[in-house]
Each structure stands twice: as structure tokens, then as C-alpha cells.
Design a protein around this nucleic acid. Structure first.
Length: 421
RNA sequence: GGAGAGGUGGCCGAGUGGUCGAAGGCGCCUGACUCGAAAUCAGGUGUGGGGCAACUCACCGUGGGUUCGAAUCCCACCCUCUCCGCCA
């Protein structure tokens, strides 16, 4: 959520920044108009309430059987009616303005490149090299099914499309990768491990910006709860409505993620790339505003460290405005090389939200100098998407004989196992 | 699921119809004392909104209601704790 006062103060700045995203600008004018009306109503209600409280002071000491007291009482009834009327309108206007604000996306950082789609993203750097094969590399589902360790058909039977059953060493590989990543982030990068609930309420979904715009993308269960689409939601909301004593705060969490993938019907129908349920190790940071750009670079580096340790070739791209998520001010994607698909695929998305989520979720800290609470900046990134890491390990480690070589760094987590056969 | 207790400022905790944005304590800030620190003493210290400002308004779990007036009374809901039942 953007700050209505900043918008009112300098609407042109916001208009220009949002125009880069396209049609989002129009919602801005409606919100500005509602804000003007809102302020007028506040002044009116405050004036009435002031008159009321002055009268109340007089009534405290007045003789309750006097004529003056009776006169006050009648006047007070009248004021009470007026206040109720103004307050009702105020509540409606406030709700409308707030709803509008909640639907306006974040303003992109000036550094975000122009562009309409992922084709316009800018490659910042590349690590490692494409592995060379003396045979035609297969795609991960072919490798997994040939080994008898991936079962899409039975998953479709017991649940439906876009679900998978992992078996044997592949199930263990997923578990090993998660442990490996969590150990790296907690021991080397200063994150505290968190195991949050996998169901959250609507307030949490609003706090991180998934709602109200993307309600149809989530799986809803009864009682108004929602299956988490990412650990970002429960972990960032850990500190909703709080004033943090110290920043930065860094959390990492391994959770399942559930997404309807509404609108993605034709895409990635085979394999593990686009599932309704997948697992992810997430990195979340709460930092002082002046530190968020540096924290963004650092967090991206923490995600990169996983790929480097696994020896997986990847590149880092700076998302253009057209590809940038609604809540983010800036996002760096990590794209791992998948030889079976002969392409780079997103395996991590590292975003700086600045105060956009913090304002929605009311997450603040006390700066040492002022002691006045101030909104923090929030950041998060996958470190990494575990299912897609399994894909990368399979496709990059595949051998001519159908076996898969395990990256050395991961072997301690698999009892020393060197290859999946 | 049943019975009971409770939700008040950064934290603990008092407050049962008006003089309560709220006693007291802890914590924190400033000053005194000290070479310095601790201890002690004095003062200060909630959050958010509106207004150029003086100033003003709201907020005691959430939402309604009663009343001239509600932290305080009534209703609904949410959450926490204790005991019982059930259960991985």
C-alpha cells in the first residue's frame, strides 16, 4: 500500500511512476478524490465532537435537576445524531479509499528497466557454464519416470492435474535439498529458522499484498483460511502490528506452497515446473529503510550461494516493469540452466518491497535517533524453490546411462550417496 | 466439544458510569552526583488522524447497543489461559 499523504503531496510523482506499469494510474485519481472528501468529513466530525466534549464538561458539575442541565441534554442528543451521520459517511469514504489504495501496485524503483514482458528483463550477471553432454540431454520428467521415482499418473488419480508423487531417492533428494539450504542460511547467512502455519487468515494475505487483488489465485478452505502460496505470507506477518525492537531481522522457512495457477493453463503442463503444490525455502528480511538496497543485494547473494554450492549454472536478471510483481519495487530473478529444456528457468525471485508491505501490515521499528516508530522495509526471496532445484539437479547431473550424479555438497545429506540409479 | 477465567500503553499491572489517555512499577530518555560506572535523586516518556498554527479528535481485543456521558453496563464475535472430554 502506498502512503496517501505522500500521494496527496506530490501526485505527479506517483502518476509518473505508476504510468510505467500501465493502467494502474487511473485508480490513483479516484483515491485522491476520496482523500479530499475524507479530510472534510474529519474536520466536520472533529468540530462536532469538540462541541460535545465541552458540553460534557459543563454537565459533570451541573445540577442534574436544573433547567440548564435539561437544555444541555437535549442539545447533546442532537449533536450525537449529527456525529453519527458524519461518522457513517466517513466510514464509507474511508473504506472506499482504503480499498482503492490496497489495489494500487507499488511504485517501481527508478532503476527498474522499461519493458513489457520477461523478454525485456536485463541480465545482470552469469555464474558457471553450461554443462556439455555427449548425448541428447533428457527433460527431468523423462529421467524421473525412467528411474521409477516420479509418478504423475497416480498423483492425477489421487488428486488431479499438476500434482506429483515423488518416490524413493527422489523424495529423499527433495528432503536433502531442503536441509542443505536451511543449514546454509542459518549457519552461514544469519537467518533464524521458522516453521510457520501453512494456513493463514485473510488479514495475513492482505498484509503481504496477495489480497484483495489475487484472491482467485489462492486455495481457500472453510473458516476463511487460505493455504499459503508462499512462506512469505506467514513469515512476514509474524510481525504484523508490531514495533520491532531491533532490525535487521532475518528468517528462513521451509514450507509447502499452494497455488491455483489460474490463467496459466497451457503452460508447463508436463513435469515439476508448475505444480499446484510445491516446496520452497524462503528468505525474509525486515530492515531499516536506508539499508534495504544493500539487504536486497545480500539476500540475492544468499540465494545464489545455494546454486553455487550445487555447481548449477545460472544467471541473474533484473525484472522489467512489465514483469515486476505488483507489490515489489524491484526484483532480481535467479534463472537456472536446464539442459533438458535447453533454457533458463526461474528458480528464485528476490524482491525489495520497501515500505509497501510494512504499511499494509503495520510493521515498524524505532530508529535509534528519533525513537519515533517508523515503517521497516521488507524483502524476501526463494532460497530456493526446492522442486525446481530437484529439476535442475536431475537435468544437469544426468548421465548417458540414465543415472544422475549428485553434487558433492549434497552427498552428506544423502548418506554419502554419489548417484541416483 | 463442555465448564470457568481473562484480553488495558514497549512490558507488567490498577481501574465497575462523568474530574481517566488512563494510578503504580519495569524499561527507555534527559539532568544532578561520580575520574567513570553502578546505586540514588529530579524531570520526561503511548499510538494514529486532522489543522499553516494555536490546537484538536480518535484509540483500553473486534463490531454493535444502552446513556446527555462507557475502559467501566448489555449483545455478538475473535483470541488466550485453566479443568474435563476427544485426538496425531
Amino acid at each position: 500500500m502506498l502512503d496517501i499523504r505522500q500521494i496527496a503531496q506530490d501526485p505527479e510523482r506517483f502518476r509518473a511512476a505508476l504510468a510505467r506499469r500501465g493502467p494502474a494510474v487511473e485508480a490513483l485519481d479516484a483515491v485522491i478524490a476520496l482523500d479530499v472528501e475524507r479530510r472534510q468529513l474529519i474536520v466536520r466530525a472533529d468540530t462536532l465532537r469538540h462541541e460535545k466534549s465541552e458540553a460534557e464538561k459543563a454537565m459533570r458539575t451541573a445540577d442534574k435537576s436544573s433547567e440548564a442541565f435539561a437544555g444541555f441534554r437535549d442539545r447533546m442528543r442532537q449533536i450525537g445524531e449529527e456525529i453519527r451521520g458524519v461518522a457513517d459517511r466517513q466510514r464509507d469514504v474511508d473504506a472506499a479509499m482504503n480499498d482503492g489504495l490496497m489495489r494500487i501496485p507499488n511504485i517501481p524503483d527508478d532503476a527498474v528497466p522499461d519493458g513489457r514482458s520477461s523478454d525485456d528483463n536485463v541480465v545482470l550477471r552469469t555464474w558457471g557454464e553450461k554443462p556439455v553432454f555427449d548425448f541428447e540431454p533428457k527433460e527431468h520428467w523423462a529421467i524421473g519416470e525412467a528411474l521409477g521415482l516420479l509418478d504423475f499418473e497416480r498423483a492425477a488419480k489421487i488428486t488431479g492435474a499438476r500434482f506429483t508423487v515423488y518416490k524413493g531417492l527422489l523424495a529423499r533428494l527433495e528432503r536433502a535439498l531442503a536441509s542443505f539450504m536451511l543449514d546454509l542460511h542459518t549457519q552461514q547467512h544469519g537467518y533464524t529458522e521458522v516453521l510457520p502455519p501453512f494456513l493463514v487468515n485473510h488479514d495475513s494475505m492482505r498484509g503481504t499484498g496477495q489480497f484483495p487483488k489475487f484472491e482467485e489465485d489462492a486455495f481457500h478452505v472453510d473458516d476463511g483460511l487460505v493455504l499459503v502460496p508462499t512462506a512469505e505470507v506467514p513469515v512476514t506477518n509474524l510481525h504484523r502490528d508490531e514495533i520491532l525492537e531491533e532490525v535487521p531481522v532475518r528468517y528462513t522457512a521451509f514450507t509447502p506452497c499452494f497455488r491455483r495457477e489460474a490463467g496459466g493453463y497451457g503452460r508447463d503442463t508436463r513435469g515439476l515446473i508448475r505444480q499446484h503444490q510445491f516446496q520452497k525455502v524462503e528468505l525474509v528480511q525486515f530492515v531499516a529503510p536506508e539499508d534495504s538496497d544493500a539487504a536486497h543485494e545480500a539476500l540475492t547473494g544468499h540465494a545464489e550461494a545455494v546454486l553455487q554450492a550445487l555447481g548449477l549454472h545460472y544467471r541473474v536478471v533484473d525484472l522489467c516493469v512489465g514483469d515486476l510483481g505488483a507489490n515489489a519495487a524491484r526484483t532480481f530473478d535467479l534463472e537456472v540452466w536446464l539442459p533438458g529444456q535447453n533454457t533458463y528457468r526461474e528458480i528464485s525471485s528476490c524482491s525489495n518491497f520497501r515500505d509497501f508491505q510494512a504499511r499494509r501490515a503495520r510493521i515498524r521499528h524505532r530508529p535509534a535517533d528519533t525513537r519515533k516508530p517508523q515503517l521497516v522495509h521488507t524483502l524476501n526471496g526463494s532460497g530456493l524453490a526446492v522442486g525446481r532445484t530437484v529439476v535442475a539437479v536431475l537435468e544437469n547431473g544426468q548421465q548417458a546411462d540414465g543415472t544422475v550424479l549428485i553434487p558433492p555438497a549434497l552427498r552428506p545429506y544423502l548418506g554419502g550417496l554419489e548417484r541416483i540409479a
